[in-house]
Computed example of a mutant assay.
Amino acid sequence: MPAKLKLVKKSECYRLTWIGRVLVLLFFTAFLFFLALFIPKFLSQSNPVNGQILVLDGLMPDYAIKAAIDLYESGNYEQVVVTGEILSVGYAIADIKTMAGLSYATFIELGFEADNITSLPTGNVVRNRTFTSALKLNSWIKDNKLNITKIDVLAVGCHAARSKYLFDRALDEHIAVGVVAVEDMGYNGKRWWQTSRGLRTVLSEGLGYLYVRFFFFPRKH
């Protein structure tokens, strides 16, 4: 007679003892604590290359623009370039329509010389905004036949790592890209998980960085 069809079978398994459970719990607790300290530090590292151009992309807080002015005055930058898409708030009533224009106007209001700053608005960008800004900068450099071999991107907090990577991908290979990270004043970086803004910022920037490193395959043209 044919063997009976069996749907289940007896098997032996191992389970953690109480000591094993405690050790696993301690391991994961230490791992999470390490991530909590490491992730924001990694994402907000400064690594400038003493570039010829200092670039600010997107909607920048005033304290970041003040920091950019201090950097320009104490360094060897030849030009500041501000980029950014159309403003999503106040567009209908404001005279300034883009993030680049708002940054430009803030620089001028703070006493910065207009000859030392260039505004490169990117228009209405739905996705890949930082990469689009970097492409705009690359086109501007080539169109004006500028001899630029290195730039620094100024970014706020955890956006620094992603900004550097995307500008590095978008610019021509002979242009070295550095980054200057300005501390994000919107939350306590050492206790970022204690506020909703800190939690949203670190987690979203962390996921965003992983996305552009492993799942973003853009075309430059």
Rank of each mutant, 00 (worst) to 15 (best):
I117F: 02
I117A: 02
I117H: 01
V125Y: 09
Y77T: 10
Y77V: 12
Y91K: 04
Q79H: 06
I108M: 06
I117V: 13
T122I: 13
D95Q: 12
T83Q: 08
K66L: 12
D70Y: 09
A68H: 05
L120K: 10
Y72S: 12
Y77M: 13
E78N: 13
I96E: 06
D95E: 15
V89I: 14
E113S: 12
F107A: 01
M99S: 12
G75C: 14
F112H: 04
S74F: 05
E73T: 08
V125Q: 09
F107G: 00
V126Q: 12
T122G: 08
Y104V: 00
E85V: 05
D115E: 15
V82Y: 02
G90I: 09
T83Y: 07
L102D: 04
Y91F: 13
L102G: 06
L110V: 01
G84E: 03
N124F: 10
I93D: 14
E109T: 12
I96W: 03
Q79I: 01
D70R: 13
E109P: 05
P121L: 04
I93H: 14
V126D: 09
V89A: 12
L71W: 05
N76Q: 15
T122D: 07
V82N: 03
T122W: 03
K97H: 07
A94Y: 00
A94Q: 05
S119I: 04
N116F: 01
K97W: 05
S103C: 14
T118I: 13
V89N: 08
T98H: 00
V89R: 10
I86D: 10
V81P: 06
A94T: 02
T118N: 04
E78P: 01
E85T: 14
L71Q: 14
V81R: 05
I96T: 10
R127H: 13
Y77W: 13
R127N: 11
E78H: 08
K66T: 11
Y104W: 07
S88W: 07
I86A: 06
E113L: 08
A67P: 07
Y104L: 02
V80F: 07
T98E: 03
L102Q: 10
F112Q: 04
A94D: 06
G101L: 12
G84W: 01
K97N: 05
A92L: 10
N76Y: 10
V81T: 10
E109C: 04
I69F: 00
E85G: 15
I108A: 03
G84I: 01
G111K: 01
T122L: 06
F112N: 03
S103H: 04
G75K: 12
S74G: 07
E85P: 03
T98F: 00
K97I: 03
R127D: 11
I108H: 02
V126K: 13
K66E: 11
N124M: 09
E85W: 09
Q79K: 11
E113R: 12
E73Q: 15
Y91P: 00
L87F: 00
P121V: 01
D95R: 06
L120C: 13
G84R: 02
I117M: 03
G75S: 15
A94I: 00
T98A: 01
